[in-house]
Design a binder for these strands. Sequence first.
DNA 1: TAAGAATCGATAAAAAAATATCGATAAAGA
DNA 2: TCTTTATCGATATTTTTTTATCGATTCTTA
Lengths: 206, 206
Amino acid sequence: MVNAESAVSKATVSRMPAYLRYLKGEAGKGVEYVSSAAIAKDMGLSAVCVRKDLALVSSRPGKPRFGFEVRLLIEDIEKFLGYHRWTNAVIVGAGGLGRAILSYEGFDNYGIHVIAAFDNSPAKVGAVGGKPIYPMERLGDVVKRSDVKVCILTVPRSAAQEACDQVISAGINAILSFAPVHLRVPEGVKIKYEDLAVSLAELCGA
Amino acid sequence: MVNAESAVSKATVSRMPAYLRYLKGEAGKGVEYVSSAAIAKDMGLSAVCVRKDLALVSSRPGKPRFGFEVRLLIEDIEKFLGYHRWTNAVIVGAGGLGRAILSYEGFDNYGIHVIAAFDNSPAKVGAVGGKPIYPMERLGDVVKRSDVKVCILTVPRSAAQEACDQVISAGINAILSFAPVHLRVPEGVKIKYEDLAVSLAELCGA
DNA sequence: TAAGAATCGATAAAAAAATATCGATAAAGA
DNA sequence: TCTTTATCGATATTTTTTTATCGATTCTTA
């Protein structure tokens, strides 16, 4: 309630990327306007919820009888989420998953620049998809020179805590970990777990 | 409110995998008992929240002055989440990401069995990490024979909708998609998006 | 130009979730 | 044995989030 950003609920923020994905799909089909009811139906939400969410981020109100302007809404959401500011990221762990992510196509749309990968094993050093893979020793340098803010951790479970510590001491304080283990991090370091198995299990059970 | 399961809130359910990951870590270190306060501190939650969550799934109450028995709690959570029932899954799209997931180590702990991958391109057919990669034509057969319940979709963005349709017509009705596009699915089919870029962006912004 | 339909936004109500408080319990140590 | 301390579980409160309702707006069309 202190500033404008915290007035938007967490739940709303977490739905924004889904709106964005949906709206980009519609825009790609040439749709210019879309109503809250239509969005709600396609995305499995209530229309009221959609309206309330969009009202919080849209720079122009929706038009009665038409709905929201798709292109404008996309811009507003991207601005709201900060996707216009570029953030540099690196990958630590150049195994199968790390290399796959290194050549993943989707990051550029979200203001994220994956600039390189790092690995302990000299055998992995080289490049994939035009992006370099360096030995771990160079992590600190690259982080400082390129102002890297985020790390994607794709090392095996057993190496995760050690790699995590190295990443933090290199100056990174936001980590997205694919290793299915709880990592100990000092206060102030943000960590998020991307557990494929959990995602899948939720899907089965829900 | 009708049955026991729906009496547990969604928010609680969504925290369970995190508890599990944490508790397994503690168990690995030889810890036998853990208090709600300790869990809360390590995981960044409130102790009351932890107690309330655990009370809902634990078969035996926590002991005053000791806390909860780690091993028992792990069992209870796994039982609650249904990780003791095995579910068969397949991967559709055997590019870098698909192959990486095919050899991912973490699924077995969560009752998920990834049995094979499928791809349109004949060049991709073969095997990775002891698991077969079949041509798409065989998808229907395998789904029926092995009672496959879930599909992990790792095809490029442009092929996603078509692959999605094929998967559904093969009889699968739960999809975890890595393609950063909104997919149209008929009523009754569950879909979940695993957007790496979004996860990363949330981490930066939060 | 006026009636009608579809949609929005704002306010209000309901539901869900998180947090606080407090008595009860069981182990530890005097 | 008795007191102290750490911890739990239950009830109550507050906060957050979702859903419902309704008047206002604006385009369409007769």
